[in-house]
Each structure stands twice: as C-alpha cells, then as structure tokens.
Design a protein around this nucleic acid. Structure first.
Length: 654
DNA sequence: CTAGGGTTAG
C-alpha cells in the first residue's frame, strides 16, 4: 500500500485519503499522470455507489453498500457517506443511531456531511440537535453552506420558533456573505412570515440589495393570506417579471378572500400575458367559479382544464375541485360525471362529492357514496363526516346521524370538533327536537363556537321558539358582536311569534352597535350568460313592467289553487295588506318572474340568493315549478333547493 | 443541492 495522495485538511473538499497500488497497476494508462488515474478510478467508483444507493429500497441493501464503501478507499469520503446518510433518511430511518454512527467515524466531516445529518434532525423536528450540530460544524472550522441555513430557517418557520430564527439570522451576518445569498435571505423572509411577523419579512425584503421573483412572491402570498389584497396587489404591480407562481398567488388570493370576479379577471390577464398555467393556477380559478355559482363560468373553466396539457382527463386535484364547483353551481349531475370519470380519487374527491349530494338534498346518494368510500383505501376525514352529517341533517335522518356521529370516533378515531357538533345541533334542531339540541350544546366536551349557537338559533327560526332563540342569540352577541345575521335571525323569530316589542329591542341593540342589515338580493343567469341581479323591491331592471305582470299572473294562478301568503315571514309589525306587498317583492320572486319571461318554456331556471330563502318564496316557487312545468334550482346561503312538479328536494325542511 | 403557489368544511 502506497500513500499517494494528500490528506485533505480543508473540510470543504472530499476527504479522500488513500489509493491502493494494486488498483493503480491494473490500469495501464501510462501516459496519464499518476493522480489523474486515481481520480478517474475513484470518480468511477463513487458514481457507481451513488447510483446503487439511489436504487436501494431497504436496510439490507444499504448495509451491503456500506460494507463495500468500508472496504474501498472511499471509507472516509464525505461525498459518498453524505449520500448514504441522505438515502437512509429518505427511507425514514431515524438519525440515531445508524446514520449518526456513520458520521461519527469520519475524521474530517465536510459541510455536506453535516448538512445531511442536520436535515435528518430537522425532519425529526429535533431542532436542538440540529443547532448543536451546526455549532460543532462551526467549531470544527467547516463553513456552513447556504442550504444549511435554508434548512434551519425552514425548521424555525415550521415550529414558529421566532427567537431561534432571529439568532440564525444573526449568524448569516456573522459568518459573512450569507446575508446576501438569495436562497438564504428568501428562506429567512419565509421564516419571519411563518412565525407571524410579516413586517419583519417586509423589512428584510425592503433592505435586500437584490431580490428575485421568489422574494416578491413570498410577500405577495403573505399579504394575500392575511386578507390584505391591496398590499398584495401593489407589490404585484411593481414586480418586474411575473412568473406562473406569482400570478397564481394573485388568482388564489382573490379566490380565498371571497373576490371571485377579481380572481377570474386576474386569470384572464395571466392568459393574455402568455404565462403558462398549471393545475394549481386552475384550482384558484375553479374555486372562484364555485363561489360565483354561474354555469357559464363552470363550463368555461372545465374546457380550459381539459385543454390544458395535464391530460384530457382530470387529475385528482383538478377533478376534486371541479366536483365541488359543479355542486355549487347547481349541477350535481355534472359533478358526479366528473367524479365517475376520474381515474384516481382521493379524500377530497369523495368528500366534495358527498358534500355535493348533501347540499342538494340527495342524502341517500351521499350515504351510498360514503359506504362505497369506506371499502376503499381512502380514509374519511373530519370534512367527510361533515358532509355525511349534513346529508342526514338536510334529510331529517336523525337516527342515522347519531349513528354516524358515534361511529366517527369509535371506528375512525376522529374526535368530533365543534363543527361536527354544529351539524348535530342542526340535525336535531331542524327535526324540531330543540330541547335535545340545546342539551347537546350544554353538555358538549369542547367549548361551543359561534357556529354551534348559530345552528341552534337557525333551528329556532324554523320552529318559532323564541326562548331558546334568546339563549342562543345572547351567546352569539358575545362571541361575534358584529355579525349582523344573528340579530336579524332573532328579530325574525320574535316577529314570527308576534313579539313586536322584543323585535324593536333587538333592532335598537343593532343600531347601538352601528350595524346595518345587508340588503338581500338574488341573481339569475339569462340565456345569453348575462347575470341579472335583483334587490328586494328592485324596479330598476329594464323589463320591470313585464316582470311585475308575470309575477301577478303567477300569484293569481297559485291563489286559485289554494296558495295563501305566509304573512308570518314578514318581520315587521304592519297590517296584512302591507305584509302581502312586502312578500310580493322579495328578490327571489323578482328573479323567478324574470326567469319565466326570459328563458324558453320548459327550460331550467337557476336562481342564487345571498341569504336563506323565506317560507313564502319557497312555497311560491314550489307552486311555480308545477304550474309552469319548470325545473327550478335555487341556491341559498345554506343549500340547494331543486323544485320539480310542486316538490322541493329539501322536503320543506331547511 | 437548498427559496415562492393548491382543492373539500367553518
């Protein structure tokens, strides 16, 4: 054995130490200088080992490779050993003891080796060990690499460990150079954002000598997530080169902040600018279309999705989003067709479909799909159960609901959340079992949130139960004092019982808190895809005269068949004639009348409403579907109503 | 060998 090569004292290069004479003599390339041959041979061996490691699937295989390394001249090679450690960690082996022991035997570990181990500890969320190793690396004279910092920042962000993050920030300056490394600084910004200190991230951003599209996008995304679309938009406008991710952040930002029209507008601009689109961009647009609930947009975005390069058939994510969208646009049939056409399905696909059926009152289909789901590999999650419970609730299936509710924890290990209790309260409340519902709220093991009391209050509205309504409302007035809907609901309950002095007390409370009622409105798509909006009593539509006439004709025909206006739906202390007039001009009735005169006889009418449908409108639309022979679909704030031949899919139960 | 975007419920 001849010692040929230098001992690598600088820890940044690979610590190769020896090469055997035997290996050398087998190589007859006499004209090549000595060290070049050994380099070549070792490089060859290294790359063979790395390839083998990439193919390793289990511990036995890795140990074989390790044995080969130990017998070769690569026994101290940081490059190969780092790869070995990374492979182990990729296969989910804990850092201790095996990968750590490999590291411990290396005399001069280089930063790559340190980094492999640090990353391992980070994955195990052992932040302290990572930091210890980092200090050891510094003490040993090895310089850190930028990805050591990025990994550390990432871990601090995930653990929301701001103080440690700031220390590491200090290190980047101390070590020198890294505070100008884009990878490092960008992950630092991300760390501050994840720790909830957006302004710190912004400060770093403002002081950066050079920034790239990633720095910008991080901040735009952070503003969008806090709902500050103005700041997001300002930054975005100033971004010199907008790439796909930056555009996508704006699209999904608007979608997540309930600004679907803006989301679609940004998407259209994105397409004009010629930037590529991928499925994540589409998710934002699809979600926006779902919020709009307009069939025109639904078909448009499905076409865009199908034309895009990720396959004519939908991917799991896009497919699942489309299912949700079609359900919310009133087309459960289309939603189910997408569901059936998907090659692969996940928990989103099933949950969205179950929720879709539930929203449309197709409880039986929802349950059937749930039964099918549990035979697959896909595990139901908390959202799935919200779908199943909603289905029970909308169909008045109290007993099945209780069964599912118990099954959830027993068989699937999902602890009922406040949202699940909301479903149960809704289920009992709708079925008229208000006392039981109230009892459940009082005895639930977790703190009831606004949703739970809101469900109880909503049930009191249907069953005209002012006493429990007052209890629920008082909780709500504390939990969410500025939520206008609760005051309106309580006032409506009092009004329906004729307790007018209580109604005016609630109205006074509203005024005292500076709250004003949101105007109710409905909208409908005409045949040409135009959207027509109607407010209550709205006579601004160009065809108002015809609309009024059509409505009067309709009501006349209904009265001839025994229809009586539900005067108790009017929350004002006025005479019956005025109540009749108020009911007559409800926005959904105007939209319905416009639908009747503006669409072809026999075609479907779709109406969307921003609040719950009232009882009187519900019965009028039921009658209209029969007399006029029309399918009518109404989406209110809670669910869908499919009216067909005088019957609604909700079974008069909403 | 590292930095940015995502779907269901509420």
């Amino acid at each position: 054995m001849v010692t040929l090569s230098r001992k690598f004292s600088t820890a940044t290069s690979d610590s190769l130490t020896y090469i055997s004479h035997k290996q050398f003599s087998q190589n007859p390339q006499k004209s090549t200088p000595f060290y070049q041959i050994q380099q070549q041979q070792l490089e060859h061996l290294k790359s063979r080992i790395v390839t083998t490691l990439d193919g390793c699937k289990n511990l036995t295989q890795i140990k074989q490779v390790h044995a080969r390394i130990l017998l070769s001249d690569l026994e101290q090679s940081c490059y190969v050993l780092a790869k070995l450690i990374r492979t182990l960690i990729k296969l989910n082996f804990p850092v201790d003891p095996y990968p750590r022991s490999i590291f411990n035997r290396v005399k001069y570990p280089n930063p790559f080796l340190y980094n492999a181990l640090i990353r391992g500890y980070l994955i195990e969320e052992r932040l302290n060990e990572s930091i210890e190793l980092y200090s050891l690396m510094r003490k040993g004279g090895a310089g850190p690499l930028s990805f050591t910092f990025t990994a550390l920042f990432k871990a601090c962000g995930a653990k929301m460990n701001m103080s440690l993050g700031r220390q590491i920030h200090g290190q980047t300056i101390l070590v020198g150079g890294f505070d100008e490394d884009l990878h490092v600084v960008n992950s630092m910004i991300d760390m501050y954002i994840k720790c909830g200190f957006l302004e710190f991230g912004r400060k770093v951003f403002d002081e950066m000598p050079k920034r790239d599209v990633i720095s910008w996008t991080e901040l735009i995304s952070a503003y969008a997530k806090t709902g500050n679309m103005e700041s997001a938009g300002e930054l975005f406008d100033g971004l010199p080169v907008k790439d796909m991710v930056a555009w996508t952040v704006m699209v999904s930002g608007f979608a997540q902040n309930a600004k679907p029209r803006e989301a679609i507008m940004v998407f259209e601009k994105m397409q004009e600018s010629g930037v590529e689109t991928d499925e994540i961009t589409l998710l934002g647009v699809i979600s926006a279309c779902a919020q709009l609930g307009a069939a025109k947009y639904a078909d448009w975005i499905r076409e865009v999705a199908e034309k895009s390069e990720f396959g004519g058939k939908h991917s799991v994510v896009v497919g699942s989003a489309l299912i949700d969208m079609y359900s919310k646009c009133g087309s459960v049939g289309d939603a189910y067709r997408v569901f059936q056409g998907m090659k692969e399905r996940n928990v989103y696909s099933y949950s969205s479909m179950i929720l879709g059926f539930a929203m449309h009152g197709r409880a039986h289909d929802a349950m059937k799909l749930f039964d099918e789901m549990v035979t697959t590999e896909i595990k139901p999650n908390r959202v799935t159960f919200i779908g199943v419970l909603t289905a029970c609730s909308h169909a008045g299936m109290v007993e099945q609901g209780w069964q599912i509710f118990e099954l959830m924890e027993k068989c699937y290990g999902i602890k009922p959340s406040a949202d699940h209790y909301t479903c149960m309260v809704d289920l009992l409340g709708r079925a008229g079992r208000l006392q039981e519902a109230h009892e459940l709220v009082k005895t639930m093991p977790i703190e009831p949130h606004g949703g739970v009391w809101g469900a109880l209050l909503g049930a009191c509205r249907i069953h005209k139960s002012p006493d429990i309504a007052a209890i629920a409302a008082n909780h709500l007035f504390e939990l969410e004092p500025y939520c206008i809907g609760n005051y309106v609901l309580l006032a409506n309950v009092y009004a329906s019982c004729g307790r007018w002095s209580d109604v005016s007390t609630v109205r006074k409370l509203m005024r005292a808190r500076g709250l004003r009622k949101n105007p109710a409105f409905s909208w409908i798509e005409s045949e040409k895809g135009m959207v027509h909006e109607f407010f209550s009593g709205d006579m601004t539509h160009p065809r108002s005269g015809e609309i009024k006439q059509a409505l009067e004709d309709l009501l006349e025909r209904l009265e001839a068949k025994g229809y009586q206006p539900h005067l108790s739906s009017v929350p004002y202390d006025v005479n019956d004639e005025d109540k009749r007039r108020i009911l007559m001009i409800h926005s959904e009735k105007l939209a319905l009348a416009f639908g009747l005169i503006s669409t072809l006889p026999g075609s479907e009418i779709r109406i969307v409403k921003n609040v719950r449908i009232c009882e009187d409108c519900h019965s009028v639309i039921c009658g209209a579907s029969q007399i006029m022979g029309r399918e009518i679909v109404v989406r209110d704030i809670m669910r869908f109503h499919h009216f067909h031949d005088g019957i609604c899919s909700c079974g008069n139960f909403w």
